[in-house]
Computed example of a mutant assay.
Amino acid sequence: MPKKTVKTLSKIASLGLASAGLYHTYYQRKYPLIVDEPDEHILKVTKDEAMSNELALDWVMEANYTIEMNEKVVPYLSKRVQKGELKRGDYTLAYDAYVLDDAVATVTIVHGFNEYKEKFQEIIYYLLQSKIQVIIYDQRGHGASKLTPQQTQIDSQNFNEYVLDLKAVIDQVARPILLKGQKLIIFSHSMGGAVTTSYIEQYANEVDGAILNTPMFMIDTGRYPQSFTYLYTKLMTKLGYGRHYIPTTEAFEPSRHTVYNETPEEAISNSQIREEYFHKVNLTNHTLPTQGGSLNWLKTAFDTTHEILKPDRLNQVNIPVLLIRAGEDNVVQKEGIFTAGYYLPNVERVLIPESKHQTYLDHDNALKSYVNKLIGFIYSV
């Protein structure tokens, strides 16, 4: 290669790196994050602590998990569930209502990306035993709330539609079953945490408290900085490739995705027994489960997290918030959670050091401590 050509290519490469560096700096200034370790309550549990602090609930144990879920939990829930649908534009939201005559509180559950309402059956079982009635729904494009049963890609060009769906469920399903003086609380996980945060920022004081469980405030983009991933996503959607899959996800493929084969390193839960069980539940309930997301979804998710982490929006949320972070989270990054915790005025920050992203699918002792914390917060609101 001629020396002149080499020199030209070298200049272009240097210019590209410099531009990338400038954009990264610009991005960090435009969307600043808190990076310092906050003062978090550490929920670290030994077997003795779990036994001394646990509530008097009928617990489901890993040693006999599938049998206990199928023969005890599922029949218990089936006797108490009221299934319904709520029309929202092109989507029909499927929901389950577990109504109690003697409920002390009502909890609306907002699940995460690529999840479905049945995945929270064990948690619902514990809440009902604690006299907490539950509303849970499939978010649009998930579970039974898809446009067609064949839809396997999660696509969105307006993240606020998720927020308006939550508002509709609160207003039309949860609020009508409230008893006098009863508290209404949202329990949200991951993407559901972003949806819930946007909701409580926009509709102040419409609920009495919120649990943000490993919320999706900053998506883990792996070895690529979030700034570059966001730029790439913006460019691709602008060029008309918004319906392409996010590079780390893919379409549902029956020959590969019907078998649970996650290794402990790849799994997003500590309890692979629980995770495998609900993998099978997903396949049983949904002929073609959702599998991956579109670049449209990723871009609007980035746009939303940029907005909800603004200090002036977080500062106006006065209701009690329980903010839970998993120490071994491999889905969301901690800086987004640090930022929300720093600016929320009425927040309790909890760290579960050894837990992964799906804290509600942990090993027995850790799960007991986790559920104790959830129920304790609900009763304290």
Rank of each mutant, 00 (worst) to 15 (best):
residue 159 F to P: 03
residue 13 A to G: 13
residue 313 R to T: 05
residue 127 L to R: 01
residue 375 I to V: 14
residue 235 L to Q: 01
residue 55 L to S: 02
residue 242 G to S: 07
residue 304 T to P: 09
residue 21 G to I: 00
residue 358 Q to G: 02
residue 155 D to V: 09
residue 323 L to Y: 04
residue 160 N to S: 08
residue 226 Q to F: 02
residue 204 A to Q: 14
residue 43 L to G: 00
residue 175 R to Q: 15
residue 225 P to Y: 00
residue 94 A to R: 11
residue 46 T to S: 12
residue 133 Q to I: 09
residue 96 D to S: 12
residue 44 K to N: 15
residue 293 G to H: 04
residue 170 I to C: 09
residue 280 K to A: 11
residue 153 Q to F: 09
residue 368 K to D: 06
residue 128 L to R: 04
residue 104 V to G: 05
residue 360 Y to V: 09
residue 58 D to V: 12
residue 356 K to P: 12
residue 347 V to F: 03
residue 231 L to F: 00
residue 148 T to Y: 14
residue 283 L to N: 11
residue 12 I to P: 06
residue 16 G to M: 11
residue 230 Y to C: 01
residue 20 A to E: 03
residue 351 L to I: 13
residue 257 H to V: 14
residue 51 M to N: 09
residue 238 K to M: 15
residue 248 T to F: 11
residue 48 D to L: 09
residue 55 L to Q: 11
residue 61 M to F: 15
residue 177 I to Q: 09
residue 80 R to S: 07
residue 359 T to H: 10
residue 8 T to G: 05
residue 118 E to I: 13
residue 280 K to C: 10
residue 347 V to Q: 11
residue 286 H to S: 06
residue 154 I to P: 00
residue 136 I to D: 06
residue 47 K to Y: 12
residue 45 V to Y: 07
residue 84 G to I: 03
residue 306 H to P: 06
residue 340 A to N: 08
residue 308 I to Y: 02
residue 378 I to G: 05
residue 268 I to H: 14
residue 358 Q to F: 11
residue 182 Q to E: 15
residue 135 I to H: 01
residue 301 A to M: 10
residue 232 Y to G: 03
residue 326 A to G: 10
residue 121 Q to P: 07
residue 236 M to S: 08
residue 24 H to E: 00
residue 269 S to G: 14
residue 299 K to A: 01
residue 49 E to W: 07
residue 352 I to Y: 02
residue 340 A to G: 13
residue 213 N to V: 11
residue 132 I to L: 10
residue 119 K to D: 05
residue 235 L to P: 05
residue 7 K to D: 12
residue 31 Y to N: 03
residue 95 Y to N: 01
residue 96 D to C: 12
residue 249 T to G: 07
residue 275 E to K: 10
residue 73 V to A: 06
residue 11 K to D: 12
residue 53 N to L: 14
residue 56 A to S: 10
residue 306 H to K: 01
residue 31 Y to A: 02
residue 45 V to K: 00
residue 13 A to P: 12
residue 202 Q to I: 10
residue 42 I to D: 03
residue 196 T to V: 13
residue 203 Y to K: 02
